[in-house]
C-alpha cells in the first residue's frame, strides 16, 4: 500500500479528573504518516501539546501489539475504531484520508469512571475475576502432561473464550453498559475444563453478583459486544453463562 501523509482534525475528550466536568477540545495534527498506528498519531499530538506548553492527553496503552487490552479509545462511535477484531493500537492511519475529522471519547459506563481524559478505571473487571474467575489447585510438582484428557472441541472453545483481553470494548459498545461478554468469557473458559469443575457453581453465582454490584447493566442480546470485540469473543459464551447460571440456581449448591 502506498504511503502518504495527512492532516487531521481531532476532537478529543479532555477531563481533569473524575470529579471535574469534561469537554471536547479540537486539535489539528499535520503530516501524519499512513503507516502510523492510531496511538502513534496520539504520541505525535502529545509531543505537539508538550512543545506548546500544554498538558498532554492521558490515554491507556501498554503492549501496542494488540494483546494486552490496555488501549481503550471510543473512536467515531466505535470502541477501538472502525476495524473489526482490532485494538486501537493496531488500528493504522491508512484508514483515514487527508482532512478527516476524528472524534475520540473514553469508554462510557457507570462502572468505568473516567480517571483523566481518555483513561477510565477498569478495576471493576479485576473484582469480577477475584469473585470467582480462578481455580484452586494444590501446588507441587507439575502434573504429567495429558493426565487430564480434554476433548479437542472443548479445549478449542475454552481457548477461544480465554482469548478475552479484558479491554472493556464490550461494555463500551453495549447500550446497557453490560459486561456480559467479558463475564461470560471468564466463566466459560473455566466451565469447559475439568480444572474448573470444583468451583463451577459458586463461580458463576459470585461473578454475576459482582458484575451487578459494580454497576454494569443487564444483557439485551443486541450482539453489539461480539461485533466490537477485538478478540471476536462469541456471544455463544453468554449462552453458556446463562446455562451455567440456571444450572447453579437449580442445583441448590452455593
Amino acid at each position: 500500500m502506498e504511503h502518504y501523509n495527512m492532516n487531521l482534525t481531532l476532537k478529543v475528550w479532555r477531563q481533569q479528573n473524575a470529579q471535574s466536568q469534561g469537554q471536547f477540545e479540537t486539535y489539528q495534527v499535520k503530516d501524519i504518516s499512513s503507516e502510523m498506528s492510531f496511538l502513534e498519531m496520539f504520541d505525535v499530538l502529545n509531543e505537539q501539546l508538550i512543545s506548546e506548553g500544554k498538558e498532554p492527553i492521558t490515554f491507556d496503552h501498554d503492549c501496542r501489539e494488540g494483546i494486552c487490552g490496555a488501549c481503550s479509545m471510543f473512536i467515531d462511535g466505535q470502541p477501538h475504531g472502525p476495524w473489526s477484531e482490532t485494538t486501537t493500537c493496531q488500528l493504522h492511519m491508512r484508514q483515514y484520508k487527508n482532512g478527516d475529522t476524528i472524534v475520540v471519547e473514553p469508554w462510557r459506563a457507570k462502572a468505568f469512571p473516567v480517571i483523566k481524559d481518555l483513561m477510565v478505571d477498569r478495576s471493576a473487571f479485576d473484582r469480577i475475576i477475584q469473585a470467582g474467575g480462578y481455580i484452586s489447585v494444590n501446588t507441587g510438582n507439575a502434573q504429567d502432561a495429558n493426565c487430564l484428557p480434554i476433548a479437542k472441541d472443548k479445549a478449542d472453545e475454552s481457548f477461544a473464550a480465554a482469548a478475552c483481553i479484558g479491554c472493556g470494548a464490550c461494555v463500551a459498545a453495549c447500550k446497557n453498559a453490560s459486561a456480559m461478554l467479558f463475564l461470560s468469557a471468564k466463566v466459560a473458559h473455566l466451565a469447559l475444563l475439568p480444572q474448573g469443575e470444583p468451583e463451577r457453581r459458586s463461580r458463576v453465582m459470585n461473578m454475576v453478583e459482582q458484575h451487578d454490584k459494580e454497576g454494569f447493566g443487564a444483557c439485551t442480546n443486541t450482539m453489539a459486544c461480539e461485533a466490537e470485540c477485538p478478540k471476536a469473543i462469541s456471544i455463544l459464551n453468554i449462552r453458556r453463562l446463562n446455562a451455567e447460571y440456571i444450572g447453579a440456581v437449580s442445583s441448590g449448591r452455593d
Binding site: 476532537k11 475528550w13 471536547f24 471510543f74 467515531d76 462511535g77 466505535q78 472524534v103 471519547e105 462510557r108 459506563a109 457507570k110 462502572a111 459498545a173 447500550k175 446497557n176 453498559a177 453490560s178 454497576g215 454494569f216 447493566g217 450482539m223 453489539a224 461485533a227 466490537e228
Partner: peptide, 14 residues
C-alpha cells in the same frame, strides 16, 4: 448504567 452518553453513537454498525 451509562450516566454520561457518547457524543457519537454507533447506530446500526454493530
Amino acid at each position: 448504567k451509562r450516566p454520561v452518553d457518547y457524543n457519537v453513537h454507533p447506530g446500526n454498525k454493530s
